[in-house]
């Protein structure tokens, strides 16, 4: 290589290619994403965080929670359950129809004690044949799409997380490490604010083997006045303060908990379906105000 212009040209071409792909194209593809509708309820999703939860996102960022906690759920596939609600008037034709698609379940007891799961198939296309066969003879079936994978079986989420889940987050912190569990749905998994506060103050008091550091600096230890504070943590054992003292969460602790409780990304979306749909999220501000 003789001239410096070749070096700069090489660097320019290489870098601009990856810049275009990883900065420009995502911006075009996702940069203007807006609320989507959930399936089938047609609610708007996601809703921007407000109040304490929005402030708590800043606390989450400033304490570097992302270095140990991811906020993204992976999914390896889906299983499709076909649930029979009504076998129709002529049960033997229904049974014959089911048997045609899936000979393994050709037993009379299949269609007793409804509603009942009658088949589990690998994808929606396979379930369609069964649905068609049963509805053709007057039966009624429902198809449940259940995402699968180790994250989901750990209860970290009902479905994988998708770009839509993050459109109102800033800073977006999907995380790359799981020294602690995933938090994408911690608000629906561990929805008790008192549990969350105790866990932040003394992780081992609620989870014996926890390796999470304690965040005592988010709490204030003070002498009990005439009346004990209603907000004081209810602690027992080693973590309880000395007699006459109480542990009260600071604003930062309450903001952080409000944020954690607002973390839910389980709305069923067209691109990431979950049926039957999970219960709707409670308002984050009512939870946080407790």
């Amino acid at each position: 290589m003789k001239s410096s212009s070749t070096i700069f040209l090489a660097a320019f071409i290489a870098l601009s290619a990856s810049w275009a792909a990883f900065v420009l194209v995502p911006q075009i593809q996702l940069g203007r994403a807006d609320q989507a509708k959930t399936v089938p309820a047609e609610d708007k999703y996601p809703v921007a965080r407000a109040g304490l939860a929005a402030q708590g996102a800043e606390v989450y960022r400033s304490l570097g929670c992302v270095y140990c906690h991811s906020q993204q759920v992976g999914q390896q596939g889906v299983k499709v359950e076909v649930v029979l609600f009504d076998a129709g008037t002529n049960t033997s034709t229904t049974l014959a129809a089911i048997a045609k698609v899936n000979p393994e379940i050709n037993k009379p007891e299949t269609i007793t004690g409804l509603p009942k799961e009658i088949a589990r198939v690998a994808d929606i296309a396979a379930s369609d044949a069964l649905v068609k066969a049963v509805t053709a003879v007057g039966g009624k079936v429902e198809v449940n799409v259940i995402p699968t994978g180790s994250d989901i079986s750990r209860g970290w989420g009902k479905r994988r997380t998708v770009a839509q889940d993050y459109i109102y987050d800033s800073v977006v912190q999907p995380g790359t490490r799981r020294a602690g569990p995933d938090l994408a749905n911690v608000g629906s998994r561990l929805a008790d604010p008192n549990w969350q506060l105790n866990h932040l103050y003394a992780p081992k008091s609620v989870l014996k083997d926890s390796v999470m550091p304690s965040y005592r600096f988010l709490f204030e230890k003070r002498k009990i006045g005439k009346v004990a504070s209603a907000e004081a943590l209810k602690l027992t054992g080693d973590s309880a303060p000395a007699a006459g003292f109480e542990i009260v969460p600071t604003d930062k602790a309450r903001q952080l908990v409000a944020y954690l409780l607002s973390l839910r990304s389980d709305a069923p979306l067209f691109e990431s379906p979950v049926t039957p749909p999970p219960a709707p999220a409670p308002s984050t501000n009512t939870v946080a105000a407790k």
Binding site: V23, P26, G31, A33, Y166, S170, V171, V172
Partner: peptide, 19 residues
């Protein structure tokens, strides 16, 4: 520019940061 002055929306932030 894209993360701190004119933050891009949603996961585009992650894309920029990882890039």
């Amino acid at each position: 520019l894209l993360l701190q002055f004119f933050p891009v929306r949603g996961v585009v932030q992650s894309s920029v940061a990882w890039w």
